[in-house]
Design a protein around this nucleic acid. Structure first.
Lengths: 234, 234
DNA sequence: CTTCCTTCGATACAGTGTATTGAGAAATAC
DNA sequence: GTATTTCTCAATACACTGTATCGAAGGAAG
């Protein structure tokens, strides 16, 4: 039985009133501050002045906690008032999808762990469904086959781009958030590898000015790619 | 100091000759069979008839083992003989990128855990560099700015699409690899959610024939999107 | 043969997710 | 009102994780 089907245990007016909401929020705070690895049932429970086993009334497994965390962030992404379908497939489907993608990226930058979990588990929570709903609704009343093609392609890009961006961000910070230090740390090794001559294209790319890829720009290309699908019918 | 910089300890002709190669292969076999969570230093060591601490001569942390595993799969992806740059930006850059994307996907289907790790850690291993090299080389001598735009966009799509596909595959298998059983399990919950009327677009999508999104098709769209960049020159 | 230095395995520790169990309180029955 | 049942919670326990420490064994150098 899925988490979202099970009712919460009635909140006893016991010492500290607990709830899924509070548990999830504590877990998210922990993950935001100290990373996903720091999220243990013991620490989450401790943050709420409770024993670890207390949580098992609200969750039946740690996986479920992660599911709830992910769903919570989906809730941050989807604009709360946008349940209604957008304009009937005008040309603003691009703007709508772009907006959603941007919000997804921003949420992932706020909650870096989200990028690790995104797409790694089936999303059936209410907010994940709302997210899916919002995605599909961007295309108005376009044919369902077209909609799924467009949305899944764009979503795949967003997922991958966000993941890459967060990873790079972490890597930079790992060496002391100094770009110079980063080059200095990875430099010797990379230089030696490139000196082997086995990676000429990489060498050319490293020596050139570093144009780090832009999220919005890549998104434009992807949207360009699927645009004929939606305007051209099919 | 990175793993790839450190030499292996000289292989004593001790009871069982160990090597990074053997360790990584054992770990990969374990991950393929029982999932990434089953990869523990103890189990890997046991598979090689060694104590857990023995591995610390070859690795200094479990993270490094994961890095080596990822790099090994990169080695499976990149065609071994394709170090030379492809044709000078003809029109076969599409074919080359497609080939590489397909091979990436196939590797992820062979090693599902690869999808979980892909893009989650900086890739600087020799095979990862070769992969990057092969990606960049697909575009021949196109301007470096264009190359990075194209490759990073395509890679983002591949990463996201592969991840989604593997996740769905796992979800289906979790209920007993029966599509009917899957619908039956998730059905009641989904039906109830859809009955709330809050997800009309999702409902339309679920009721319609389920066109699961195709990897190659989405890739085509993305390539279409970046095509003007490479043919039109920057 | 003795000495030294490397390498290995055992032990140990802090931390994890979770099953079990026993105490205590709330709710019900009389 | 008291007695009994039921439910909730916290403590304990277990198997497991990654890794530090340390003592012993074994090959190399003198």
């Amino acid at each position: 039985m899925l988490v979202w089907e099970r009712p919460e245990p009635p909140s006893r007016p016991a010492p500290s009133p607990l709830s899924r909401e509070r548990i999830v929020r504590a877990a998210i705070d922990l993950a935001d501050r100290d990373g996903l690895d720091a999220v243990s049932l013991r620490k989450v429970a401790a943050a709420l002045d409770a024993g670890p086993m207390r949580l098992y009334g609200y969750l039946s497994t740690k996986e479920e906690l992660l599911d709830l965390m992910v769903d919570e962030v989906y809730g941050e992404i989807v604009p709360s008032g946008s349940a209604g379908p957008a304009g009937p497939s005008g040309d603003d489907w691009r703007a709508a999808l772009t907006e959603l993608a941007r919000r997804t990226r921003e949420a992932a930058l706020r909650h870096e762990w989200f990028a690790d979990l995104l797409g790694s588990r089936p999303r059936l929570g209410p907010n994940a469904l709302a997210y899916l709903e919002a995605s599909l609704a961007c295309l108005g009343d376009t044919a369902v086959g077209t909609v799924v093609r467009v949305v899944s392609t764009v979503n795949a890009y967003v997922l991958g781009a966000v993941r890459r961006e967060v990873t790079e961000l972490r890597a930079e910070r790992a060496t002391g958030m100094d770009e110079q230090a980063y080059q200095a740390a990875r430099g010797p090794y990379l230089a030696r590898m490139l000196a082997t001559g086995r990676y000429p294209a990489v060498a050319r790319f490293v020596e050139g000015e570093d144009v780090d890829p832009d999220f919005d720009e890549g998104l434009e290309y992807v949207l360009d790619g699927v645009a004929p699908l939606v305007s051209g019918g099919r």
